[in-house]
């Protein structure tokens, strides 16, 4: 378990992290969201014991970071931002080095190295120096070193940055499989990633916590949550739609003619809308319920703070 109380970090006059408090329990997969410079990386650097907090306390597995950082670091796997690695080493040398530092020995060491190579699919680059690898491979080497000792806590700073969609999918699967009874904290800019892998979303901006709940709750904050989008095949009089029971607002996109109906509260408009269409025999080529646009929520929340 990770428990953070009033965590602050200042660099000179600049306050990067401002009195953050939160708890993370085993099984939590936390998505750390926030604009660039929000303090995500700084927080992660403090959680991993790289930076010393200016104020506040970090306790991990009932140990205080300032007293037993080495014992804590043994339980953590960390992928720093940009996935730094020793460029002059080959992939297999680098992973062996990390395995040695992590205290893995004998057959177990061999098995773990083989296992992580399989998990992140590094077979074809084992003998290549890290500095000659593509961005995607470098990132995967970083991931491999983070999970080599099968840590209880996995902290990944932008794990999918620079990966192609297939690789992103792979990394997400990896995180999902990893996370059964462990703690995973990932930072990302990609909001869909949070709904895809996380069961908890934290948004921070300007060093402050703005939101901490499930990704579904985050979607609920969107104006588009459960909104109905539809498009008519022919030009149709749509004024009646806005008058339907429970519709708060209607928007029509001038370019593509798409109609969006916003519900009052969290009503389900679908039955009313489909009945309306059926009764009048209207031709519709698209009709669906929106899940909430995270981008909007994110922008709204974080722009308020920085404004």
């Amino acid at each position: 378990m990770i428990s953070v109380t009033n965590l602050s970090k200042a660099f000179g006059d600049f306050i990067a992290v401002d009195k953050l408090s939160f708890e993370v329990r085993a099984g939590d997969v936390v998505g750390f969201l926030g604009p660039n410079g929000a303090g995500k990386s700084t927080t992660m650097k403090m959680l991993t014991g790289f930076l010393t907090p200016s104020n506040g306390e970090i306790r991990i597995s009932d140990m205080a970071m300032d007293k037993s950082s080495k014992a804590i670091q043994k339980q953590i796997g960390y992928l720093p931002e940009g996935a730094p690695a020793y460029g002059d080493m080959t992939v297999v040398e680098f992973l062996s080095f990390i395995a040695d530092i992590r205290g893995l020995k004998g057959q177990h060491r061999k098995d773990r190295i083989r296992e992580v190579i399989r998990l992140v699919q590094l077979e074809e680059v084992l003998r290549r120096p890290v500095e000659n690898l593509s961005k995607g491979f470098k990132r995967r080497v970083g991931l491999a070193q983070a999970i080599i000792h099968d840590p209880d806590i996995l902290i990944l700073d932008e794990p999918t940055d620079g990966l192609d969609p297939n690789q992103k999918h792979q990394v997400r699967e990896l995180i999902k499989n990893f996370s059964k009874d462990k703690i995973v904290i990932i930072s990302t800019h990609i909001l869909e990633e949070v709904t895809a892998v996380c069961n908890r979303a934290m948004i921070i901006a300007a060093g402050k916590m703005l939101f901490d709940a499930s990704p579904a709750d985050l979607q609920k904050k969107s104006r588009y949550y459960q909104a109905i989008s539809l498009h008519f095949t022919q030009l149709t009089d749509i004024s009646g739609l806005a008058e339907l029971e429970g519709v708060e607002d209607m928007e029509v996109d001038r370019h593509n003619g798409r109609v969006t109906l916003f519900p009052e509260g969290q009503q389900d408009l679908m039955p009313a809308v489909s009945a309306y269409i059926r009764d009048r025999g209207l031709q519709v080529d698209t009709l669906y319920q929106e899940q909430g646009r995270l981008d909007d929520v994110f922008r709204q929340m974080t722009e308020e703070v920085s404004a």
Binding site: K45, A71, A85, Y86, G103
Partner: peptide, 14 residues
């Protein structure tokens, strides 16, 4: 320069 210091110092070594 390469950022490996962050990797190194978050490993359990002093």
């Amino acid at each position: 320069k390469s950022g490996t210091i962050e990797l190194l110092m978050t490993l359990p070594v002093t």
